[in-house]
Computed example of a mutant assay.
Amino acid sequence: MLTHAGLVQDVKIRIQKIQDMMKKEDFAALVIIGGGAPGGMGAIRYITNAHLWGGAGYAVLGQDDPDPYMLIWSSYQAVWTRNETTTRKERVESPADLMERVKELVTDYAGESGKRIGVVNMKKLLPLGAYESLDQAIGSHDLIDATEPYNAIRQIKSPFELEAVQQNGYILDACMDVFADHSYVGARYWDVCAATEEFVKAKGAFWGRTKLSLDLTPFTVPTPKDLTMSEDDIINFEIVYESPWGYWTEMTSVFSFIDLPDEAQLQLDAYLAAVDASSAVARTGNTYDDISNANDKAISDMGLKVAGKHTPDCHSTGLDGSDGPSSASDPDFVLKSNMILSYHPGTVLENDKGFLITDNFMVTDEGAVRLSPHNADRYYIRLEK
């Protein structure tokens, strides 16, 4: 059940799994690097429910201490985090010197020197200057990149997390109706997108964006602020937003005021066929490469010429937009049950043509299962003029 009490219980289980990993890897302490931007918050939020909107944050966890410390540079963000955290409120701090406080906590857990200290997001989020400061603070220990084993745990979603992802699937699917309801010839795109964002924010989301493509390419971006809707527009609309509990979903639909031209209809049918084909092979034990190959084959079988990839076909997702490798960075990555994949066939056609078709799917032994009501019938919506 999606309640704060339910989240607290779920986080306790997550921390126990992480501490089991720490003992296996012989990490006396774990330092988790975070930042206030999408893609930088999830690892910290996973064990603290910390909210960051800017700047650096560090979580510190010991092998046997069930309550992590959360260190945030901003006292304002510390207050926000204390209001909703899953750790003890007094352990959310905004010290004057973040690295000095990291040093004190690591020393409490590991002693003065000679121990293995796991660092999550060490290569992803830690700038050179911050790394030098961290190394100066706790460099008497061995600093080990712990990102991969940490992410391997959070890639497998709990029942609480799966419900939170499904909740967002329903919210973003409803956003498509909001987009349609506010669309008319002459409407300003910025206003229509703002209406969809107002809807999702009212549900409790904080971070996200809307964007679109109007030229039968998959490259969705925010429009110029003065651009208005035209009768012959073919709109590939995308909304990317976190859920009220912080879980990310990307979702798209194609909209038009007129019937889709044959070229656009074929293109859309091909990408929907790709989702069907690749979700069928997204089974436990298969690889990202199986998904990519299925996408390309399905589109080729529709008579369209595949030119390459414009984005990864999929990647694991959760409290970060990506909490692990993608089909581009690690095509041999093996799928595991209860992973959530952000699904968007990245195949691009000649002249950069293509539609962006996206949603979240859960990996099972039988193939990937869609975590929203956004089925094939919802990927095209006819607009009233």
Results as ranks from 00 to 15, higher is better:
216 L>E: 15
311 T>C: 14
101 R>V: 03
315 H>W: 01
319 L>I: 04
164 A>D: 01
270 A>Q: 02
153 I>M: 02
119 V>C: 03
361 F>Q: 07
319 L>C: 03
7 L>G: 04
381 I>F: 14
239 I>D: 00
70 M>C: 12
145 D>G: 04
263 E>N: 14
85 T>I: 10
26 D>P: 05
151 N>C: 15
249 T>N: 14
159 P>H: 06
314 C>H: 00
213 S>T: 13
364 T>Q: 11
206 F>I: 14
123 K>W: 08
226 D>G: 09
66 P>W: 07
147 T>L: 03
58 Y>D: 08
190 W>E: 15
254 V>E: 10
216 L>W: 13
370 R>K: 13
320 D>C: 10
5 A>D: 14
180 A>V: 06
308 G>L: 09
106 V>S: 04
191 D>Q: 12
70 M>W: 11
150 Y>C: 11
104 E>M: 02
378 R>T: 08
355 F>N: 13
322 S>H: 15
38 P>R: 08
220 T>D: 05
48 T>Q: 09
161 E>A: 09
211 K>Y: 13
207 W>Y: 15
151 N>P: 07
317 T>S: 01
148 E>D: 14
357 I>L: 02
336 K>F: 03
259 D>P: 06
268 L>P: 07
176 M>I: 01
385 K>C: 10
182 H>S: 02
330 D>R: 03
244 P>H: 07
20 D>N: 13
106 V>M: 00
65 D>R: 06
149 P>M: 10
270 A>L: 06
324 G>W: 06
203 K>D: 09
179 F>E: 05
239 I>K: 00
281 V>Y: 07
231 E>H: 15
325 P>W: 11
384 E>H: 09
71 L>D: 12
169 G>Q: 07
175 C>L: 02
344 H>D: 10
276 D>M: 12
53 W>A: 12
210 T>G: 07
51 H>K: 14
228 T>E: 05
141 H>F: 01
199 F>M: 02
281 V>Q: 10
1 M>E: 15
188 R>K: 12
21 M>F: 02
370 R>Y: 11
200 V>M: 06
102 V>L: 02
